[in-house]
Simulated assay, not measured.
Amino acid sequence: MKYKGEVARETTVAPAAASGTPAVEPGEAEGQRGTRNRVARSILDHGPSTAADLAERLALTPAAVRRHLDALVAEGIVEPRDQRVYGSRSRGRPAKVFALTDCGRDAFYQAYDQLAAEALRWIARSAGGGERGEAAVAEFARARVAAQAERYAAALADVPPEQRVRALAEALTADGYAATTRRAPAVAGQARDAAGEQLCQHHCPVAHTAEQFPQLCEAEAEVFSRLLGTHVQRLATIAHGDGVCTTFVPQANHANASASASASTSGRNPA
């Protein structure tokens, strides 16, 4: 995906921050804007990040990264947050992380959110509204991810169970979700020895639509459950306001992966 402010040469003043594209002050060096775009893109690709993380990824000094972050915060492109900690919390205060705001996400090309939301509202009304309308939207959401599920199933067909989460992340990344995996401790409701992996999606092309219609998230989680052959648990979603869509996949069930896995936890964040 291409960042709107990302251009080969920039000789004019960019639109104001309200447009979703960071502003360029008169006289600002082109290299500064390019680096600032790299900082925003890195947060998109990797999720909420500390200044130290960004400095290491981008081979910049921490002071330079903080200067660009200060500018992006002032423009409403990123915002500082307390770092979320899953599992046991270590001593000391969690480091501040910087996440894209809605304005920042809008600075990256999105997938016709308004049209999609209007179409889903029409489907719900046509089905009679209420529970029938919600069921119709859920049916559409499952149909929407069916084609993706077939492609992902093919990609995972010959992959050993313990490597399937990583293979799924690679398939999701190819579809623009900027997905990664990481080891994770057990979460609430799981056995203490049921550590596993977190599947992290750092971008969602339909985040704004999913905010109004969580059925889209739920259908995706159901597909993950079937593909990985295990019950999965959604810990966070971009649509819910989190920086990353995070799905916990318990390791204990990897060895027993099967196509008859139980339904996954709802796409809505756990209470």
Rank of each mutant, 00 (worst) to 15 (best):
Ala116Leu: 15
Leu58Phe: 11
Arg144Gly: 00
Ala255Thr: 10
Ala257Glu: 13
Ala23His: 11
Arg84Trp: 09
Ala194Asp: 02
Gln212Met: 11
Ala127Glu: 01
Met1Asn: 09
Tyr109Leu: 12
Ala107Glu: 12
Tyr152Gly: 01
Ala188Glu: 15
Tyr177Asp: 06
Glu222Ile: 01
Asn253Gly: 00
Arg93Tyr: 05
Asp158Glu: 14
Gly20Gln: 12
Gly189His: 09
Gly20Lys: 11
Gly130Leu: 02
Thr101Gln: 10
Glu30Pro: 06
Val165Asp: 10
Ser88Thr: 14
Thr265Leu: 00
Ala174Leu: 11
Gly133Leu: 08
Thr61Ala: 15
Arg182Tyr: 09
Ile238Trp: 00
Gly31Ala: 15
Pro48Tyr: 04
Val232Phe: 02
Val249Gln: 00
Ala261Ile: 02
Ser225Phe: 11
Ser19Cys: 10
Pro15Cys: 01
His203Leu: 10
Arg268Glu: 01
Phe213Gly: 04
Gly229Ile: 09
Phe108Trp: 14
Pro161Cys: 03
Ala52Cys: 05
Gly129Met: 05
Ala127Tyr: 12
Ala171Cys: 08
Arg268Trp: 01
Thr181Glu: 13
Glu134Ala: 14
Gly31Ser: 14
Ala263Trp: 07
Val165Gln: 07
Val13Glu: 13
Tyr86Phe: 15
Gln198Asp: 07
Glu56Met: 07
Glu75Met: 05
His46Trp: 08
Ala155Lys: 00
Val73Ile: 15
Thr180Asp: 14
Ile238Val: 03
Arg234Tyr: 03
Leu72Ser: 04
Ala63Ser: 05
Phe248Lys: 06
Leu72Asn: 02
Gly92Val: 08
Pro15Arg: 08
Thr230Phe: 02
Ile43Gly: 07
Gly241Ser: 10
Gly229Ala: 06
Thr237Glu: 00
Pro26Phe: 12
Ala71Glu: 13
Ser264Ala: 15
Pro62Asp: 01
Asp53Thr: 03
Ser258Ala: 04
Arg84His: 13
His231Asp: 02
Arg66Pro: 03
Arg121Ile: 02
Arg41Asn: 11
Val206Glu: 13
Phe224Leu: 00
Asp113Tyr: 04
Arg151Pro: 00
Arg125Trp: 06
Val232Trp: 01
Gly196Tyr: 04
Ala252Pro: 01
Glu30His: 09
Glu131Pro: 01
Val206Asn: 13
Asp82Glu: 15
Arg91Tyr: 13
Ala195Met: 09
Gly128Asp: 02
Cys103Met: 11
Arg66Trp: 03
Ala255Tyr: 06
Ser42Val: 02
Pro62Phe: 09
Glu218Thr: 14
His254Arg: 15
Ala184Lys: 05
Ala236Pro: 05
Arg182Cys: 10
Pro22Gly: 11
His240Leu: 08
His254Thr: 07
Ala157Gly: 00
Ala16Lys: 07
Arg91Trp: 12
Arg105Pro: 07
Gly92Ile: 09
Ala186Phe: 12
Leu216Glu: 05
Glu25Ala: 15
Arg268Gln: 02
Gly176His: 05
Gly20Arg: 13
Val232Lys: 01
Arg67Pro: 01
Val249Cys: 04
Glu220Ser: 05
Asp175Glu: 15
Leu216Asn: 04
Tyr152Asp: 12
Tyr86Lys: 09
Val7Met: 14
Asp106Ile: 04
Ala239Met: 02
Ala157Lys: 04
Ala99Asn: 08
Asp106Tyr: 11
Thr247Gly: 09
Ala186Gln: 05
Gly267Ser: 08
Ala136Phe: 08
Val39Gly: 04
Gly47Asp: 00
